[in-house]
């Protein structure tokens, strides 16, 4: 949604919220349903392993807990970036945005590792219903994080080169909304998929 950034800066309309932020909120509302659909699919199919591995055979809970914690930390750094942007401190904004992006990339790197490991343990994309729905759900989340990382890097470049029209903090906050949303979704996914035993 980086393209939203530019549209009309930070005017505040009838609701008191700027257009871009209201737009992002609406988009996130829509995303809830997207993940809702994917999570429902997973919940319906999670016990259907066929001849393939079961969730508990492949899951590495300690590792995933760590990577979830890393993603949570990135929410914290995102908050720092937003507060730096509000104080018009470009240097800190860039710094915290970069750290957030790096933590996000670490998380995605962890997911790539996880997928590769699962594949080697016999959980291919079409092995079973559990496999298909697991990969699609977590994969979609991974794609969302990746898009977020690219948005963050773009934001870094734009802040450094003063390419943001209108209010910088408003824009950083909007990207922040997206990032927090992705984090929250992960908490739900982590709880439902990894922590509740099948």
């Amino acid at each position: 949604m980086a393209e939203l950034v530019q549209e009309h800066g930070a005017q505040h309309g009838s609701t008191g919220i700027s257009n871009i932020k209201l737009g992002m909120w609406l988009f996130l509302g829509s995303e809830c349903l997207l993940f809702g659909g994917l999570i429902s699919t997973y919940m319906l199919y999670r016990g259907r392993v066929g001849e393939g591995p079961t969730p508990m055979q492949v899951f590495d809970i300690p590792f995933t807990s760590v990577s979830s914690f890393v993603l949570l930390m990135s929410s914290l750094t995102m908050v720092l970036a937003v507060s730096a942007a509000a104080k018009a401190d470009d240097r800190s904004t860039v710094l915290w945005l970069t750290v957030t992006a790096l933590l996000g990339a670490t998380f995605v790197g962890g997911q790539v590792y996880e997928f590769t490991a699962f594949y080697n343990e016999g959980l291919g994309f079409s092995t079973s219903l559990f496999a298909s729905s697991f990969y699609v759900l977590t994969g979609f989340h991974g794609v969302h994080v990746t898009v977020g990382i690219i948005m963050l890097f773009a934001l870094v470049a734009m802040v450094r080169r003063n390419r943001i029209p209108g209010s910088k903090s408003e824009t950083v906050e909007m990207i922040g909304l997206y990032w927090h949303f992705v984090d929250i979704v992960w908490i739900v996914i982590f709880t439902l998929i990894y922590l509740i035993p099948v």
Binding site: A101, L102, A105, T106, V108, G109, G110, V112, Y113, T116, A117, T146, I149, I150, F153, A154, A157
Partner: peptide, 22 residues
């Protein structure tokens, strides 16, 4: 340059990291 560098940057982190872990 923006998109290419952003993509390469994240790809390097993601790929290197997952290779090390594996």
């Amino acid at each position: 340059e923006f998109p290419v560098l952003a993509t390469i940057g994240s790809a390097v982190v993601i790929l290197s990291f997952s290779r090390i872990m594996l």
